[in-house]
Design a protein around this nucleic acid. Structure first.
Length: 276
DNA sequence: AAGTATTCCTGGCCGC
DNA sequence: TGCGGCCAGGAATACT
């Protein structure tokens, strides 16, 4: 499932395919999922950014202004959902086709959890998670003191991380990995300063390593890059999808539980719930 | 207000 | 072989 490292890898890969190109036509068949995409037609991609798990394509007004239309800049949002990704060729799971003045790029999404929308830059009211997105884990904005303070009164730590509020881009895989590395039980509440500091460092470490490895490609192949290349971080997983395998710190078999409707993997010896 | 359940959606896998 | 049933899960929504 695409989380920050996979989305960032995708961003880097599609940048040379879309930057500076003009979107001539956007084709899809699910208006309720892919909203206002026609507004992007005739506009030029002048930037490809990312916030958390969202890709943000900045669209210049120039071409539209020439055509006598609304001249304000627009933003094309893409969320990859569970199985979304870009491809160079159309396939059975092509959901959105971005036709440009120099060829097409295809948004592929078998399970249709992904989203595409065109909005005014920064107007994210229809996307509450993006609107309330916490700091980027690999930026200076991810302050340790602030994180420690918020963690002191938070509920179960894993659902808290998945909310995208304390930090952006952490999903199921990297939440489990960060908690394993910081030796915290996924259901731990009200982290001490020492625990929260460990988690803060672990999130940065895991995210940086995963971005460097091009993300994780799971056995089911749900995530791969536009060229079919696989990420390499899955070989560094310590907890996620390692149910029953020995913990690499202590040898205890990794356990799987369900927490907040999410499959959750942890070491019952290294990651014990502390009574508070 | 925060926590929990439900919904979306489909490929892949399991067991019979 | 084929089929039904179940599972994966990010985010929005509807509840309690």
């Amino acid at each position: 499932m695409p989380e920050l490292p996979e989305v960032e890898t995708t961003r880097r890969k599609i940048e040379p395919l879309l930057l500076g190109r003009t979107l001539t036509r956007i084709e899809h068949d699910a208006p309720h999922k892919y909203t206002d995409t026609h507004k992007a037609e005739g506009r030029t991609v002048i930037g490809i950014g990312r916030r958390g798990k969202y890709l943000l394509l900045r669209l210049a007004a120039f071409e539209a202004a020439l055509a006598g239309e609304d001249p304000g800049d627009l933003e094309l949002l893409v969320h990859l959902g569970m199985t979304g990704g870009f491809r160079l060729e159309a396939g059975p799971h092509t959901r959105v086709t971005l036709h440009t003045d120099q060829g097409a790029v295809y948004f592929n999404d078998p399970r249709r959890f992904g989203k595409v929308a065109v909005v005014r830059p920064g107007e994210y009211a229809a996307f509450p998670t993006l609107d309330g997105m916490g700091p980027e884990p690999l930026s200076e904005d991810f302050g340790e003191a602030e994180f420690v303070k918020a963690a002191a009164s938070a509920g179960a730590v894993k659902p808290w991380l998945l909310s995208q509020k304390p930090v952006s881009g952490v999903g199921n895989i990297y939440a489990d990995e960060s908690l394993w590395l910081s030796r915290l039980h996924p259901a731990q509440k009200k982290l001490t300063a020492e625990e929260a500091s460990r988690l803060h460092a672990a999130i940065r470490e895991v995210m940086a390593a995963a971005v460097a490895a091009g993300g994780s490609t799971l056995g089911d192949g749900t995530y791969q890059q536009h060229d079919g290349e696989a990420g390499q971080f899955q070989v560094h997983h310590h907890a996620y999808a390692r149910t029953g395998e020995p913990c690499e710190r202590c040898g205890t078999p990794i356990e799987k539980i369900v927490l907040a409707q999410r499959g959750t993997h942890f070491c019952p010896h290294c990651q014990q719930l502390q009574p508070r």
